[in-house]
């Protein structure tokens, strides 16, 4: 009998510890989860609801069910006979955005990979300085950085002035308010997102492998594509995703450098909540953008899983 009693006391103590831990954890998590759930996740639900409503006359919504927002994305309703006619306007904005984001991703990769590799081969102390230099712009205001880019690429910007003074061109190159400007702006905005993950995967790379590669392949380009790139692949993929996703949803870059004429998805969505005042359509467009982003992440997760099972 005396043996049983302390055992049940011990069991009670174990149970009590577990309960205390659960309660403590719940209280500790409560503020962060409440704020994010209420202010970031709940609104997404509202957006889903709004996308199925009818636009209000002065912005906002009228509580009447409608799938018009999604229909409007692809078709235009003929005002006379009420038939649906295919409308490429919005689809082309999406395609343009995807194209620009892909282009910027490729551009950032071409610039970012060599930079990451260069940093990874530096001695440790220098690496930290380089990394700091790459990270710092990320923490400065994107609006101001884009504005600064606008200053140097416009017709009277220093790039044109220098090119003209050098006698390379006689009249200024028009870059600003073109797709090129948006493309340059996107690379410039998100370049650090490409460099950092590639650096992180290269940092772990054992460079004696590279040296071993010279024994086997003897050629720099071959070593690069057969040894280094495969090993840095996780970082390259992460970098591409980190550039593509914010590029796709960019707002400031096309707004300032595209002059508001060359729209991307982000501006189109914002417009629906401003001047155009079609909240349901804006909500639907935002959800389609989010679906695209989730699709990219899912494809990546799928590819990662397949890669893992191939290796295993």
């Amino acid at each position: 009998m005396s043996g049983r009693e302390p055992q049940s006391a011990l069991a009670a103590a174990i149970e009590q510890n577990k309960r205390t831990e659960r309660v403590t954890r719940a209280w500790l998590l409560a503020p962060a989860l409440t704020i994010i759930l209420a202010i970031s996740i709940l609104p997404l639900g509202i957006t889903v609801v709004y996308s199925f409503l009818t636009p209000g006359t002065y912005g906002g919504v009228t509580w009447e069910f409608s799938t018009d927002s999604y229909v409007q994305f692809l078709f235009q309703r003929d005002i006379f006979d009420d038939t649906l006619v295919f409308n490429s306007a919005y689809v082309s904005i999406f395609l343009r955005s995807i194209g620009l984001a892909l282009g910027a991703t490729l551009g950032a990769l071409i610039l970012g990979f060599p930079t990451a590799y260069f940093i990874a081969t530096k001695p440790r102390e220098q690496r930290n300085i380089w990394l700091f230099l790459i990270t710092l712009p990320f923490w400065t205001n994107l609006l101001i950085r884009t504005y600064a880019m606008l200053l140097i690429i416009r017709d009277e910007g220093i790039i044109n002035i220098m090119l003209m003074k050098a006698g390379i061109i006689s009249s200024p190159l028009t870059i600003l308010y073109t797709d090129t400007a948006v493309f340059i702006g996107l690379i410039y905005s998100f370049l650090p997102f490409m460099v950092l993950p590639i650096y992180a995967s290269l940092e772990k790379l054992d460079f004696s492998l590279v040296e071993a590669g010279y024994d086997l392949y003897a050629n720099r380009l071959k070593v690069l594509f057969h040894v280094i790139v495969p090993l840095a692949k996780p970082g390259i993929v992460a970098g591409c995703i980190l550039v593509f996703i914010p590029g796709l949803g960019a707002y400031i870059t096309p707004e300032l450098l595209g002059g508001g004429k060359k729209l991307m998805i982000g501006n189109m969505i914002a417009m629906q909540f401003g001047a155009s005042r079609n909240w349901p359509f804006g909500s639907a467009a935002a959800l389609i953008l989010m679906a695209l982003v989730i699709l990219v992440l899912l494809l990546n997760a799928l590819a990662a899983r397949r890669g893992a099972s191939n290796n295993g």
Binding site: I39, S40, I46, M290
Partner: peptide, 29 residues
């Protein structure tokens, strides 16, 4: 929990922006 905490980082800012606007408009009303 990690997913919820990092959620604001994973969604394009413009989406969060209009979604929050919709919620706040409702609350204000």
């Amino acid at each position: 929990v990690y997913g919820i905490i990092n959620q604001p980082l994973m969604i394009p800012e413009i989406v969060t922006a209009i979604a929050t606007l919709s919620l706040f408009a409702l609350v204000k009303k």
